[in-house]
């Protein structure tokens, strides 16, 4: 029995030490994935907590048909996307409320800085993250898992429960959309 399988079995029995070991082993992976999707440090931290609480509560539903990390990536991406959806709903409601009092929507500037990006790429990466934020959910997830987590297309396909060719197509469309967004941005801001 591998260490990972052993930890999972212990966690199924409610062992807190095993839970701590699992959190310590996978916390950066979960945090980085969520951060790439929600693009906000504080929200990513709260959501990472949610993910591990879900792991603790739902570990008995993990049958071992996929890798534990794949299962964990699925929970992390679903949690992050659910959060974005609820945020969008609230924004829409806020927009409707603001219609009465006049709408002064301003163009948002790229303001998310991923802590793993080198200093000389900081501004450029912020522009790219803003473009990533405009991608449809499945493209955003595939792009984040591949680019930020360094997963292969096969691994991404397992997380998204789809085929490798579907992931290739998602990545190709994501790149096209990003090019479009970036072109628009640089046409406006390039001097």
């Amino acid at each position: 029995m591998t260490n990972e399988t052993e930890l999972i079995e212990q966690l199924k029995r409610g062992d807190e030490t095993a839970f701590k070991a699992i959190v310590e082993q996978w916390k950066d992976m979960v945090h980085n994935t969520i951060l790439g999707i929600v693009q906000n440090e504080t929200e990513a931290e709260d959501l990472a907590q949610d993910v591990f609480i879900k792991v603790f509560e739902k570990i008995n539903t993990f049958k071992g048909d996929s890798k534990f990390s794949t299962w964990l990536y699925r929970i992390a991406t679903t949690t992050a996307l659910d959060h974005l959806r609820s945020k969008k709903r609230k924004k829409r409601f806020g927009f409707l409320q603001s219609l009465g009092g006049g709408n002064d929507e301003k163009e948002s500037i790229p303001d998310f800085h991923h802590p793993g990006v080198s200093l000389d790429n900081k501004e450029r990466a912020a522009v790219l993250f803003k473009a990533i934020d405009s991608l449809p959910e499945n493209q955003k997830t595939a792009y984040t898992l591949h680019k930020l987590e360094g997963l292969s297309y096969r691994d991404v396909s397992e997380v998204l429960n789809t085929t490798v060719s579907a992931v290739e197509s998602l990545m190709s469309r994501a790149n096209q959309n990003l090019r479009k967004e970036l072109e628009e941005y640089y046409n406006k801001h390039y001097r």
Binding site: V23, H31, H114, P115
Partner: peptide
Amino acid sequence: KIQQEIEQTLQCLDGVKRAESNPFLFTRI
């Protein structure tokens, strides 16, 4: 020049490091 900027921007995440989570995450959980 814009095309060059786009290419450079698309490549800026190559070799990005993993963001580290809060060291007290387990205590918070």
